[in-house]
């Protein structure tokens, strides 16, 4: 474990694990309902990768917290105020275009962040990042291609993708809003300051979205509060009522 405040490290790990947990959950909602079989199968793979990453991030968080909890306890027995995921990821799926746009915006972020984490001063984080970055590299390739295909497809698909981008854009800024947890991680060489990733991120999504003939909204307003836990959208509570139902209704049971 890196030489860093345990409380801060825990917060960082929850941010990583809650992101993949909540997005994995959202993507899994598509299973059996996608526009075509091949997409149904691909979305399930994405969700499976994300939930698998969640086990690693939250598993390590549990280890750092060292109070007898498991990854499952963290996922299924916290209330909304304890979640540290980006607001973007808890938003409802919307149509397939909105789901894929959200996926792309997040995949792009992960595809830049995870390779940096492979050089983390924390060995466990570096190992998780190594596995996750391979998956993220494929995710971003696939979601970018789909965003381009739909953005530069028919008139309708273009319109829907632009609407998705407009809807989600105000949630992108939160990825790069650094705070004292990030400062502590950066100082200890555990993780990069997210603000330092913005330039590379803008270049990547700028290239893809322009190929998709989509226009990035001219606004840098950002909804915030998910990653630092100050606030969430109303949607998270509903997601948790489903996700946590069995664990809450039958405490102490093993499944």
């Amino acid at each position: 474990m890196a030489n860093v405040d345990k409380e801060m490290l825990t917060q960082f790990l929850l941010r990583m694990g809650d992101n993949t947990l909540i997005l994995g959950h959202r993507v899994s909602e598509w299973c059996g309902h996608a526009p075509v079989l091949e997409e149904d199968i691909a979305l399930a793979n994405t969700a499976l990768d994300l939930i698998g990453q969640t086990q690693l991030w939250l598993g390590y968080a549990a280890e750092v917290m060292d109070d007898g909890k498991t990854a499952d306890d963290i996922a299924f027995l916290r209330d909304a105020w304890d979640f540290r995921n980006l607001l973007l990821l808890e938003l409802p799926n919307g149509d397939f275009g909105q789901t894929l746009m959200r996926q792309f915006l997040f995949d792009a972020y992960q595809s830049i962040l995870l390779p940096r984490l492979m050089k983390s001063s924390d060995q466990a984080i570096a190992e998780i990042a190594e596995k996750a970055s391979k998956e993220a590299a494929y995710h971003v390739e696939r979601s970018a291609e789909t965003v381009v295909g739909l953005g530069d497809g028919t008139e309708e698909s273009h319109k829907r993708m632009q609407a998705a981008l407009d809807r989600l854009w105000p949630y992108v800024g939160e990825m790069f809003a650094s705070d004292d947890v990030d400062a502590a991680m950066a100082a200890a060489g555990v993780a990069p300051d997210p603000a330092s990733l913005r330039e590379e991120y803008d270049a990547l999504i700028g290239k893809v979205l322009s190929e998709a003939t989509l226009t990035i909204p001219d606004s840098d307003f950002a909804h915030k509060g998910g990653r630092n836990g100050k606030t969430h959208t109303e949607h998270l509570g509903h997601l948790l009522t489903q996700m946590q139902w069995l664990q809450r209704a039958y405490p102490g049971a093993t499944w």
Binding site: V36, L37, E38, I41, A42, N45, Y138, E141, R142, E145, G149
Partner: peptide, 20 residues
């Protein structure tokens, strides 16, 4: 076999469908 709009997507679909 599988369905895809073009070769690039066919390769990606193949990865997702046939190398699970």
């Amino acid at each position: 076999s599988l369905h895809a709009p073009d070769a690039e997507m066919a390769i990606k679909n193949a990865r997702d469908v046939y190398t699970r």
